[in-house]
Design a protein around this nucleic acid. Structure first.
Length: 584
RNA sequence: CGGGGCGUGGCUCAGCCUGGUAGAGCGCUCGGUUCGGGACCGAGAGGUCGGAGGUUCGAAUCCUCUCGCCCCGACCA
């Protein structure tokens, strides 16, 4: 391509609306333009990068036997009603009506459509396994689109689905995808961690997220520095030192605690207790995932621990949990936050004619002689034995892991906690969709069984933003070679000097003949402007054609290292070819 | 959805509080000088001040409504 006629609208100044680095650079370097909140146009450079990323994705999907489809982006409501997700997806789904008044929606994902195909066409175990995928535009009316390409309302996704007769087949398919994903992100030059994650609205038993570390990320993940264990904070656990309690009294005893509102207050209150010897009591309202019934929950944690709401929701099978309002707490327990406790809470809830569930964090197991609120304002109880006096309905991991805690998976490792963005997610769906939508096959034994499914997604735009987040400097983007829009830019320092222009043209032609994607900067601009622009848009290599052509030399500049070297024109094509294409 | 902020030439922003002929820098066009890290001089083009209504002799500026965008939180495959 000739820069003089190629559309690369670079901006000298930072766009005002862009906050995160990838958004700023993609905008400034002329890769994207915004159309609306969470809706972006990919300009020629941006589309090139997206296409190269998709090429990598296709190659790795095909390598594990994936078959590419192209499914509709607009769906009749029926299939979503069958799976039950017409309601579940709520406001996030873009909905519309056709001229006959029939409900339609824009596809957020394609489990329903692929399952529809599978149930019509797949009858026998002999037709399995299948691995189907597509690269499609998805629509999600996110409550808060943000950060450029990171959270979009319209985006491109590679979504793959596996269909197997049994769990073992699913395990294999899942493992294949996992390996393929590793190759994809490795090739795209993105550093990532594979974490265990909560399956959320997708359902299913197991899921792994591929997370790219960046301060612009929306999730926190915990990663072990020794063994590589990694978990989304929604799922991550850690090992903490056990606290040994002395024997407590035969029954809890109440004592007045005027002015005490917080765990912290009680640690310094005379006759109080250290935070790790207190039981923190949080009141939540949960909505059951299946029945939609709402009920109250007491979440019990050690005083110095933080609740993770997703863990709470997961442990309850709730679709939604929220902290109870002050009035709701008082109605339920007869006291205000700061004096709440699990002892006798069940009786109070019964008296208030409310359903209550008590969930305790596993760090509380076996604990006794604890201190907690008395459900009477400014009073607490000491000598509480959690099991004996509170009798929780269930025990679960509710605690938020924090940095510096010990790895649950190895000896001696320490967890680090940092922000990351989700770039891929693989799920073992099991039979959730095949059962609700009736996709069944006859097994070898002649029995009918639901197809066992998996679902595997990669956000294409997120590959771009993750790459830019992880690979840039003060001058601009530094593209990983596999997804750079061009392999090399040939910068003609002065188009008014014939011998320089001629040399540039010759190199441009030869490099292209050598199979490289080449951008020729033939603009009538000063050299400085061209260098700045080339750095900004982030092409991995720059060949500067200038005065030295008279000595048969050009300059090869490596964008990543910023090293440049004079090389002879004769050998330069082969040199660039090996450097630009090696290891891709 | 709660909180905060912002809409003024293509871009970044000033002007608004205290109403009175719409500004700057960058970019763009033309001419000249320059020419290896975002040049300089000169001459130009370009704006219904997001939209609607209102107050006023007069509104970018004050009031009301509305649309859009950004950020924080909640939420989230």
């Amino acid at each position: 391509m000739r820069w003089s006629h190629y559309f690369i609208p670079t901006l000298r100044e930072d766009p005002a609306d862009a906050e995160v680095i990838s958004h700023r650079l993609l905008l400034r370097a002329g890769y994207i333009r915004q159309l609306g909140a969470g809706i972006y146009s990919l300009l020629p450079l941006g589309w090139r990068v997206a296409q190269r990323a998709m090429k990598v994705v296709r190659e790795e999907m095909d390598a594990i036997g994936g078959q590419e489809f192209f499914l509709p982006a607009i769906h009749p409501a029926e299939v979503w009603k069958e799976s039950g997700r017409w309601e579940v997806m709520g406001e996030t789904m873009f909905r519309l009506r056709d001229r006959k008044g029939a409900d339609m929606c824009l596809g957020m994902t394609h489990e329903e459509v692929f399952t529809t195909i599978a149930r019509h066409e797949i009858r026998s175990y002999k037709q399995l396994p299948q691995v189907w995928y597509q690269i499609q535009t998805k629509f999600r009316d996110e409550e808060r689109p943000k950060s450029g390409l990171m959270r979009l309302r319209q985006f491109i996704m590679k979504d793959a689905y596996s269909f197997d007769v049994d769990k073992a087949g699913l395990d294999r398919a899942f493992e294949d995808q996992r390996e393929a994903y590793k190759k994809i992100f490795d090739r795209c030059g993105i550093k990532y961690h594979i974490v265990e994650a909560s399956s959320g609205a997708m359902g299913g038993s197991e899921s792994n997220e591929f997370m790219a570390r960046t301060s612009a990320g929306e999730d926190f993940i915990a990663v072990c520095d020794a063994c590589g264990y990694a978990g989304n904070l929604e799922k991550a656990t850690s090992r903490i030192a056990q606290v040994e309690d002395e024997a407590g009294p035969a029954a809890p005893e109440a004592f007045p605690t005027p002015g005490v509102r917080t765990i912290e207050d009680l640690t310094t209150f005379p006759g109080g207790a250290a935070a790790d010897r207190q039981v923190k009591t949080l009141v939540y309202l949960a909505t059951d995932g299946a029945t939609r019934e709402q009920y109250a929950v007491l979440a019990l944690l050690r005083g110095d621990h933080q609740l993770h709401e997703v863990k709470l929701a997961d442990s309850l099978g709730a679709s939604e949990v929220r902290p109870a309002h002050p009035e709701e707490i008082r109605d339920l327990l007869g006291a205000s936050a700061g004096s709440l406790g699990g002892v006798g809470a069940r009786d109070r809830a019964t008296a208030a004619k409310q359903k209550l569930r008590i969930v305790a964090d596993s760090a509380l197991e076996g604990r006794r002689a604890m201190t907690t609120g008395a459900n009477k304002d400014e009073h607490h109880l000491r000598g509480v034995d959690v099991e004996r006096d509170i009798r929780p309905d269930s025990w679960a991991d509710l605690r938020t892991v924090s940095a510096g805690e010990a790895c649950p998976n190895c000896e001696g490792g320490t967890l680090d906690v940092f922000k990351a963005m989700e770039i891929g997610h693989i799920f073992k769906l099991g039979t959730k969709y095949s059962e609700s939508m009736g996709a069944r096959v006859l097994t070898q034994e002649g029995k009918e069984a639901p197809i066992v499914m998996g679902s595997y997604g990669i956000g294409v735009e997120r590959i771009l933003s993750a790459a830019v987040e992880q690979s840039h400097d003060a001058d601009g983007i530094v593209w990983p070679r596999a997804i750079a829009p061009f392999d090399v830019v040939v910068t003609v320092t002065n188009v008014k000097q014939q011998e320089i222009t001629d040399a540039g043209e010759r190199l441009y032609a030869e490099l292209r003949r050598a199979g490289l994607e080449v951008l020729l900067d033939d603009r009538d601009e000063r050299a400085g402007v061209k260098f700045k622009d080339a750095d900004l848009i982030g092409i991995p290599f720059r060949l500067t054609v200038g005065k030295k052509v008279t000595d048969g030399k050009v300059e090869l500049f490596d964008r990543a290292t910023k090293q440049s070297e004079d090389v002879s024109i004769d050998g330069v094509v082969a040199l660039v070819q090996t450097r630009a294409l090696s290891g891709l």
